[in-house]
Design a protein around this nucleic acid. Structure first.
Lengths: 253, 253
DNA sequence: CAGTGGTCTAGACCACCGT
DNA sequence: CGGTGGTCTAGACCACTGA
């Protein structure tokens, strides 16, 4: 056959495009550089803009690109490793913790939260909001649910509300003897409020880390943390975590 | 104003649609049930099919729906919790391990793998392929890279290739004293081969779990495991992991 | 084979950003 | 304001599934 290779076995255009762009990013662009706009790129590759966008979406999902409305598409830096607690258990808000308390409210939890807390459906719960910075950027938000029964020493006088109140709740929590913790990670999509905080669009992919803290066999606190999936690599274990970044030498198909 | 509420502040149609569908799934559908086809649904909601699809994509990402070409869209069961190793370190392939060896090849690793292994770029490496089932379904594939230098006792006679060879490599690995392990989790998109194995389309979102096993301060093995993000919830820690499933009572916006 | 979801097009308009 | 990415449309065709 004279032809080196026809597109052969029905690879979707957007997938092929993703591969081509990916290689171009490796060889011809550096971190932070701005790509041509979508209309130009689409024209250059002879596809509709929607198809080009499908390829860009893939690359954004993989953390290779960053797109911002009104600005443009830039080459993303490698994902930041974000430590998510290792071997030893510790309470949220302990020394050296990367989180920052934002505020706190006492409320009746949603049914699913109450179920996970193993409390009655109408038992009051303190909900502490925290956020986490990394490299000058907000990378995660957290809702920390603590049954009021877990922190009986807390008085309304400690602080009425706001960050001070949140810290007071955490202080009370630290008086308990942490017995163990379970953790789960799954893919989710950012709710509108989280999206706004994380500077993403609603529905953006996020990694949801759910942690249950147990004291005397009961659930004393429940954390639901939402990490930007595009920029974060969650690391567990002793040290900084493995780095395998995008591999230029590996073919995608 | 007579109108109870106009769509108000510019919520995208697909996002609103996602919410409406999500609530419909809670109240009017049960797991495994087949939804009307996309053309009908789009017509019913008075939107273009592409817009409807954008909403369905969100719900699929969240693990609420499952779509299969030529078949239809069904309501997905809750995600399965998949244990990803807890506190105690252990070698891959140890007793009780959920993985199944598929085959093994000795090859020169890609640059990124060699870098993570901290070996020379042209040092030979055994690459064991394994797969993991859960609930009768393949939920993950793994590439386990082991520098030939890590398992010097391995002879070519043990087994030429295939699953037997893979098991022989693991056996040799178990002779080493595991010192520690790091783990990282990040979002990725399925490469064409993984996608085929996992019964997904190329580019489907996956959770990539990278684990480095260390012996005497050096990296003795490196595992890159790819989990279906739609069906899996990765659990860490002592017990079965926290379950917070979709919460009908919580508004999405 | 008919019906499904997956891909692709060519256009339009909108929301947002920086100048 | 002009330029960017984000949303949306109405259509077409394709690949796959199951009867």
């Amino acid at each position: 056959m004279g032809t080196t290779q026809l597109d052969s076995v029905q690879e979707p255009k957007y997938w092929h495009l993703r591969t081509v762009l990916s290689e171009a990013l490796d060889s011809e662009f550096s971190v932070g550089e701005i790509l041509p706009n979508e209309r130009d790129l689409a024209a250059r590759f002879g596809v509709a803009r929607a198809t080009l966008r499908q390829a860009l979406e893939q690359l954004e999902l993989e953390g290779r690109l960053q797109r911002r409305r009104g600005v443009g598409t830039t080459v993303a830096p490698p994902r930041v490793g974000v430590a998510v607690g290792g071997e030893q258990h510790s309470w949220p808000g302990a020394a050296g913790d990367a989180w920052q308390a934002v505020d706190c409210a006492q409320e009746i939890p949603a049914a699913a939260v109450a179920a996970a807390l193993e409390t009655g459906a109408d038992e009051p719960v303190h909900t502490v909001r925290r956020s986490r910075m990394s490299g000058g950027q907000l990378v995660a938000t957290e809702l920390l649910h603590i049954p009021a029964a877990s922190v009986p020493g807390l008085t309304a006088i400690d602080a009425p509300s706001g960050a001070a109140r949140a810290r007071a709740v955490l202080r009370e929590l630290h008086r308990l003897d942490l017995e163990g913790q379970d953790r789960a990670v799954e893919l989710g999509s950012a709710r509108a409020d989280d999206a706004r905080e994380l500077d993403r669009l609603p529905g953006s992919p996020v990694l949801v880390v759910t942690t249950r803290f147990t004291v005397e066999g009961r659930t004393a606190a429940l954390s639901v943390a939402t990490y930007r999936a595009d920029t974060c690599r969650l690391t567990f274990g002793d040290s900084a975590g493995v780095e395998i970044h995008h591999d230029p030498a590996r073919r995608a198909s």
